[in-house]
């Protein structure tokens, strides 16, 4: 591996890191909106009435575990062990899918009970913030599917290692955003703050 090409890769990864940082700013504006609007329930239910905390704890642990398994996949990638990397990526994919399933079921239950994003400012802000995170997870899963296919068909080339490094950064970032959704939306909501 030539020094020049490694430098190019590092530059690409820095570029992706800058994208992630701007995505943090997007989430910050959604968090700020939620913080301002979360008390305006328009006479409807508050977060304390709606949130199912044990469910959210399971979601959190699933996402945290997927952050570990994507790290384990990267360890295998750096050791050039393709099968091992594929297995860990597969585990991450299943965990991500489970997380998304639980989240969509929560959204479905809320909508079924008539608590949609049109009900109150609180619910608009809630669905926008948590939904944007869910959308990122969906895109991450699509990306992971593409990368697993590429690992099978093309293998651990330099370009694929670079892409996998970016994917792992993206996935860890989504887990970090979720820590704050878990604390600010669900735990503080559960306290009735």
């Amino acid at each position: 591996m030539s020094v020049l090409k490694t430098q190019q890769d590092n530059r690409s990864i820095l570029g992706f890191w800058i994208y992630i940082m701007t995505d943090c700013v997007l989430f910050a504006s959604l968090f700020a909106t939620y913080a301002v609007l979360h008390g305006n329930t328009n006479g409807g239910p508050t977060g304390q009435m709606l949130f199912n905390l044990p469910n959210v704890l399971i979601e959190t642990i699933i996402l945290l575990t997927s952050s570990l398994t994507v790290g384990l996949a990267m360890l295998a990638v750096h050791r050039k062990k393709r099968e091992q990397a594929l297995i860990w990526l597969g585990v991450t994919f299943v965990l991500g899918l489970a997380f998304l399933g639980i989240e969509l079921r929560e959204f479905g239950n809320l909508l079924y009970d008539g608590n949609s994003w049109t009900s109150s400012a609180f619910l608009s802000a809630f669905f926008t913030l948590v939904g944007t995170h869910g959308l990122h997870i969906t895109i991450g899963l699509l990306w992971m599917g593409v990368m697993m296919t590429k690992l099978v068909t093309v293998g651990l080339t330099r370009a694929n290692i670079r892409r996998l490094t970016m994917l792992s950064l993206f996935w860890h970032f989504l887990d970090i955003i979720w820590i704050f959704i878990f604390t600010i939306v669900y735990l503080m909501g559960g306290l009735g703050v």
Partner: peptide, 17 residues
């Protein structure tokens, strides 16, 4: 870049609230 991001995020969140 990270430290710059934290600065912007704090201005947005703390400022809005």
């Amino acid at each position: 870049v990270f430290i710059f991001m934290v600065g912007i995020v704090l201005i947005i969140v703390v400022g809005s609230i």
